[in-house]
């Protein structure tokens, strides 16, 4: 019981600290902006640990963070193999294929307003559908290995990127295109020097949405059949044997991979669209 009270007290203390910090000039600085959420995150972990240990929650329901950390430390080779199978082979290859296919399609249909008017509503509709549902079909077609996971990812990322790229290519205004016309720029020149750069904020918006979808697609596709390696496989298998610390370890890896992937794309975006108002500070 003391652990419970202690962790609650820790929470109250950290919260008071955060309230104090958020009213002080510290939050104006960059470090302060990172500090406040960091304190909150640590508080969550401490309260989790304290409650689980204090209330004697069995490990098969919710393992404490320390047990999960220990599990990660001892099973690094397994986690690495799963990461390679699901993330590098399945999600990443599918992401690259799907995004480039969507980008090329968008540039191609951009020349035909007719196709654009037809494809956009259909694309928007499909983007709202529960696309993970095609996972069993694609697993049937492409087999259990990573190819079928990559195929699911391709389909999942295709439409968000397509819709965003098409919207981006339409983002230049009349004035700018007229200027290019007065320079007698060809279609290709206008595309490369004006419209593609102007489309980049939209494209990256789509690419960022697609990062999360890619990881979800690759993991969920493994629920429908996979070789005996992979994050989705490990999660279902360990849930079956009630090895919840391993499940949480996989989730931690997935969260880390997902955040890092997102961060990487956001970093590239910052480099490519440095001119955009949202990137200027």
């Amino acid at each position: 019981m003391t652990l419970v009270i202690l962790s609650l007290m820790f929470w109250a203390g950290a919260w008071a600290l955060n309230v104090g910090l958020s009213q002080s000039p510290v939050v104006q600085s960059r470090a302060g902006r990172l500090l406040v959420p960091a304190i909150f995150g640590i508080t969550l972990l401490v309260v989790w640990e304290g409650l689980v240990r204090g209330l004697n929650v069995p490990g098969v329901i919710l393992p404490p963070p320390s047990a999960i950390g220990a599990r990660i430390a001892v099973s690094l080779p397994t986690l690495w193999a799963d990461f390679r199978q699901t993330f590098v082979k399945g999600a990443l290859s599918g992401y690259i294929l799907g995004c480039s296919a969507a980008f090329l399609t968008a540039v191609l249909i951009d020349r035909s307003p007719f196709l654009q008017r037809g494809l956009l509503p259909v694309g928007n509709f499909v983007a709202a559908l529960p696309i993970v549902g095609i996972a069993p079909i694609l697993v049937m077609w492409f087999g259990f290995d990573w190819q079928s996971k990559a195929a699911v990812v391709v389909v999942m990322v295709f439409f968000p990127v397509l819709v965003n790229t098409v919207a981006g290519l339409a983002a230049t205004d009349r004035m700018q295109r007229d200027l290019m016309a007065t320079y007698s720029a060809s279609y290709l020149q206008t595309l490369l020097k004006l419209r593609l750069p102007a489309a980049m904020p939209f494209v990256f918006n789509g690419l960022k949405i697609a990062t999360t979808l890619a990881l979800i697609g690759a993991i969920v596709a493994e629920f429908f059949g996979s070789p005996i390696v992979g994050m989705g496989f490990r999660i279902t298998a360990e849930v079956g044997r009630l090895g919840l610390d391993m499940v949480w370890a996989e989730i931690a890896v997935a969260a880390l991979a997902g955040s890092a992937f997102y961060g990487l794309v956001a970093l590239i975006e910052r480099g490519v669209t440095f001119w955009h108002p949202s990137q200027r500070h």
Partner: peptide, 29 residues
């Protein structure tokens, strides 16, 4: 303001996590 500064970044970070991956665990637990 304290909640804005501390919860919002985590809410955003929670979306980069493949939440569907924990579905089987939630069900079983």
């Amino acid at each position: 303001r304290a909640m804005d500064l501390s919860v919002m970044p985590w809410a955003i970070a929670s979306q980069t996590i493949p939440i569907l991956a924990i579905a089987p665990m939630i069900i079983v637990v």
